[in-house]
Design a binder for these strands. Sequence first.
DNA 1: ACTAGATTCGAACGAACGTTCGAATCAGGC
DNA 2: GCCTGATTCGAACGTTCGTTCGAATCTAGT
Lengths: 219, 219
Amino acid sequence: MASPLTAARVPTRRHRAAPVSATRFDRRLAQIINHATDVFCKKGYEGASMRDLSRASGMSLAGLYYYFESKERLLFLIQKHTFTTIVQRLKSRLEGVSDPEQQIRIFILNHLEYFLANPASMKVLTHEAEALKNGFASEVAAIKREYYRICVSLLDELKTDRALQFSTRIAVLSLFGMMNWIYTWHNPRVDADAEQLASEMSDIFLRGVMTGTRTRNGR
Amino acid sequence: MASPLTAARVPTRRHRAAPVSATRFDRRLAQIINHATDVFCKKGYEGASMRDLSRASGMSLAGLYYYFESKERLLFLIQKHTFTTIVQRLKSRLEGVSDPEQQIRIFILNHLEYFLANPASMKVLTHEAEALKNGFASEVAAIKREYYRICVSLLDELKTDRALQFSTRIAVLSLFGMMNWIYTWHNPRVDADAEQLASEMSDIFLRGVMTGTRTRNGR
DNA sequence: ACTAGATTCGAACGAACGTTCGAATCAGGC
DNA sequence: GCCTGATTCGAACGTTCGTTCGAATCTAGT
């Protein structure tokens, strides 16, 4: 639970990982995960073969299985690490901010900054959301639910604070749609950077949600 | 080009389709396409096997190849038919409406109505957008570009009409994100119908895009 | 009832899939 | 320099993949 990369494999039942080699193991696994993320991004989870991953990471097909026990678990490691990181960063950024509008702007900025800094990871996270099964799926779903609920609570705060009227569920899911859809169109050579994009999307979303139905206490 | 389902196969080079059997052929192909859409929706394009499609449509594996020459072409037929239909309906609905705000509301309503009436088709269209290659891909991309440009022109009209200031590109793509993301969360037993959803999303989007920077001619 | 083309199918093709196994190689503490 | 466990690999496993082929079966016009 501490480091999302450990526990990838309890390096076989016979021998436990010496503390020195555990570092080495984790560093190598992280490299493999990075290469695998690119491949999953390019070809999709189902479309990417273990042989593709082998080629991309420069390790033999059999060698990969020393680091993770199945292709599905590799995808799980990618998604869990990505999602955990983005939630972590969000929480630390939200600390000390109390204005709900500012909090939502931070939420959007955090999401888009991470998205554009790690486009492959985020595409694999959003586009392959249904690829995992059973235990793997539910563990990622739990993180997603936490992330979703943070956004809901920020919006609910805004709603009561400014006496607004809108469906929180639809607003939150519309916002996620705006942000996550980015992976289908963003071109770093053409489009603005995260800060600019976050500002424009925040404007559209916040105006959209705050205008019109204000009844008291408006700014 | 007339009917998107014809030309699925020029029923072999040896014999041309008699006009009577052409109808039969098309009807059967349409059934297969419907079943295949459900399977692609549930398991993804890469994850669905021809044997899955055979089972779902009640036709033998070999029998399917009488109706289309490859799995990829089948996906192409689904995407082309879906996209063509939605563009067609949009155009007919836009006729005679000249107010840009009303036009955008119609655009959103048309999109969401078709989305919720044909969720499997629309999920296959949006989620498998990168699955096709070369010729297949570019033909669908052409329809997508037309659809995109219609939305751009509506927004540009609104922008000059009301002297607004925003990035059309980001606004359009944010709108598509809001709308297309629906396939990841909409639950017909919980969520509102298309009309209600379209109304709420239109409110968020239009307020978001119209508020604040209005300099003259405001309503 | 016969026929010719439209439609369907069982069986098989070679290729690619995810995964496993045992042996070879490596690295670090003695 | 040796030994032990950590790491890597070639080769192969059985399964499933998309597609093909020729024969069988339907269907409709005569």
